[in-house]
């Protein structure tokens, strides 16, 4: 029906947006960050339990479109147990993928976001939770925004 849009709204994305994983406030979180899209009012809060440089637990809450919610949901699955350095490296690859459409084949589940690059207005939706989590693990306290 919307062949052109099936790349953007893959089944996995719809599933995660309807039943997001790790969608809760995390008790004992020692690291949190907020992301905000002032254009649409959407917001996401990430909660992390860091043990040294390792992300032991991660969860999120907030409201947003299907893309941003699925992105946050899959992000939590992808980053659990990873080190800060691994998270930074993954962020760079996700960023490349959603802006160029390339590199999806080595990205596992995150590859479902490769289609986002065709919709420039939606790149910020996919990338917002990643900006927020980077901000959290790098210890910055101010909320991140899609517009800065």
């Amino acid at each position: 029906m919307f062949d052109d849009l099936n790349d953007l709204y893959q089944q996995v994305i719809l599933d995660h947006s309807r039943s997001p994983r790790n969608f809760r406030e995390l008790e004992g979180a020692n690291c949190t960050a907020q992301g905000h899209n002032p254009l649409c009012g959407d917001n996401v809060t990430l909660y992390l339990i860091m043990e040294g440089d390792t992300i032991r637990e991660i969860s999120f809450q907030g409201s947003g479109c299907a893309i941003s919610k699925a992105s946050a949901s899959i992000l939590t699955e992808s980053l659990k147990g990873r080190s800060k350095q691994e998270a930074e490296a993954l962020f760079a690859r996700v960023h490349d993928m959603v802006t160029t459409g390339k590199g999806g084949s080595e990205m596992g589940k995150l590859a479902v976001f490769a289609g986002v690059y065709k919709f420039p207005a939606r790149v910020k939706c996919a990338i917002l939770p990643w900006h927020a989590v980077l901000s959290a693990i790098e210890g910055r306290s101010e909320p991140v925004s899609t517009e800065s």
Binding site: F2, C40, A66, I67
Partner: peptide
């Protein structure tokens, strides 16, 4: 329904 406005607008644009 529970379709976010941005998703709706993206699809309508197509």
């Amino acid at each position: 329904n529970d379709v976010h406005a941005h998703d709706l607008v993206t699809v309508a644009d197509q």
